[in-house]
Design a protein around this nucleic acid. Structure first.
Lengths: 180, 180
DNA sequence: TCGGGCTCTGACCGATCGGTCAGGCACACT
DNA sequence: AGTGTGCCTGACCGATCGGTCAGAGCCCGA
């Protein structure tokens, strides 16, 4: 029928952003998005090559800005580059947290599976202990980020010597967490 | 037929661990595991209530130890608790990194989707800039962990004031990353 | 008025997956 | 020999999903 819909493409992206935020990428079917838009599933695939193409369009602005930041950094000396990297990182992370949430979504959903029931409180206790008794919200954020980051970093390690790896984690964690 | 298989249950868990490590939890079907064991899919569901139950059995030891660490910490004063928390965390993370990888698997797989093609090099450049030119491997680990952790932490924030959030991220990142 | 192209659609396809069920085999006990 | 029980299986089910396709309605330019 081709009803007068001026910018179906943008409506699809808006609906996809909503649905992905609610149920994640894998948890959202093309039919879900189509229902939100008020069109058929086939219409989505007329405007986009695939479900992945919708995702790509959604994160494209964030990816562009990240690339721009990366290029800017490449032309600076080490000291300046570090400052620009930190500022730019903070800026991107805050402005594009919806897009980043898309990436982390499946991770969060994993924790909600029955198999992981009841482990969150223990993790929280671990974090609280690392913060000590500081009321400073920055300390809170630092502790959460450090533990989460270290857990993620270890995955890419293929160290032969577990003891050495363990000790380096302790060193890094203490450096980040202990007051000076 | 019930062939003389003494410990099918353990064989299932071993096969599941292998498959999950290769293809992740979602990426592994019950049939995949059954093929590895050399039995039928129905046999898996005779020994375990569901696919989730297999996952639960796999992470049970890690969950138990985390709970034990959490309980131990709860009975200590703040200063000691922090030390024990860091040591215990490092120990758990190293010994159970396979189980942790299970949780992070879908996250890593997200980055391999075509939609994210080409963004890794930029992320790496960002990390490298944050490390500066230090050859210390601890600094490398710290930078990776800090950026990954901060990106994850921001997701649970619902701050009204984006500018303030941005500034606190910069403060925390600088505190963790800048040499003193 | 005619025709071509843009937009949109319902019907359909092939594949995957977790889970169920009735029944078969072998062994141990009586 | 008969019986029960633990272990295992093939066949099957219902549901989901991404993607394809032929065609229909509509607008616009010639």
């Amino acid at each position: 029928m081709g009803v007068a819909r001026t910018n179906t493409r943008d409506e699809i992206l808006a609906a996809a952003a909503r649905r992905f935020a609610d149920a994640g990428f894998k948890g959202t079917s093309l039919q879900d998005i189509a229902d939100d838009v008020g069109c058929s599933k086939a219409t989505l695939l007329y405007h986009f090559d695939s479900k992945d193409a919708i995702l790509a369009a959604l994160i494209a602005p964030a990816a562009r800005e990240l690339a721009a930041l990366s290029d800017r950094i490449a032309r600076l000396d080490a000291a300046t580059a570090r400052d620009v990297a930190i500022d730019g990182f903070a800026d991107l992370v805050v402005r594009y947290r919806r897009e980043i949430a898309l990436i982390f979504d499946e991770l969060m959903r994993m924790f909600q599976r029955p198999a992981f029931e009841g482990i969150w409180p223990h993790v929280e206790r671990l974090i609280a202990a690392c913060v000590g008794q500081s009321p400073d919200p920055d300390d809170q954020m630092l502790a959460r980020a450090t533990l989460a980051g270290l857990a993620a970093v270890v995955l890419n390690r293929t160290d032969r010597d577990d003891t050495a790896l363990r000790e380096s984690i302790v060193r890094v964690a203490r450096r980040a967490l202990l007051p000076r």
